[in-house]
Amino acid sequence: MDLILWRHADAEPGHEGLADNLRRLTPKGQKQAQKMAYWLDSVLPHNCKILVSPTIRTRETVAALAKLNRQFKIMEELNPEASAEDLLQAAHWPDARESVLLVGHQPTLGEVAARLITPAQSTCAVRKGNVWWITQKERDGEGLRTYLKAIMTPDLVIK
């Protein structure tokens, strides 16, 4: 199974009077989301389940992928206050039969990545707009092993 973590693209800063969940993407963030959606659409398995935090910035990030006819589901369990365990439960990791793309927030995405690929660390720095692709594979009779398959950044996407 593949677990793909996509941090929302660049968003406007929070300030007094603006609820965190209402922050929108900046023009830079819109471009980041479009580039990553283009790349993801070319590499995601056809049956990949896409789960999204309910915040405006994550919904705007995944909207670029939705324009490419990818369906997604908004899940309250992926909100900015969610724990790494909440995200893993939402993805049914490690027992899901299909690949799952989670569109969410730092530091939780970084905590998920660290838990799965670098248990000695408590978190990894997942930058805005970046995708971390984690996979599990059977390895020479040793059972399932977890690997970091790829890290992709919008700056590397040629569109």
Rank of each mutant, 00 (worst) to 15 (best):
A37F: 09
V126L: 11
N79F: 08
P119T: 09
R127W: 02
L87W: 05
A125E: 11
E81H: 09
Y38G: 08
I117S: 06
T61P: 04
T123Y: 13
S42L: 12
S83E: 10
S99D: 08
K49N: 08
A64P: 00
S99W: 01
C48N: 00
K73H: 13
N21Y: 08
V52G: 05
P13K: 06
P54A: 12
Q136G: 04
I117A: 08
T26V: 02
K73E: 15
H92M: 12
Q71D: 13
P94V: 11
L22P: 00
G141T: 00
T123A: 14
L25G: 05
M75F: 04
E76I: 06
P107T: 12
Q32I: 06
T118W: 05
H15Y: 10
I117T: 12
N69I: 02
M36S: 08
L51C: 09
G14V: 05
L101Y: 00
K128S: 14
I50A: 01
L101A: 02
T55N: 05
C124V: 09
P54S: 10
L88F: 09
R57L: 03
D20G: 07
H15C: 07
Y38L: 13
P80F: 11
D95Q: 14
P54T: 08
V62M: 08
A66Q: 11
A113F: 01
E98N: 10
A19H: 14
P45I: 05
G14D: 13
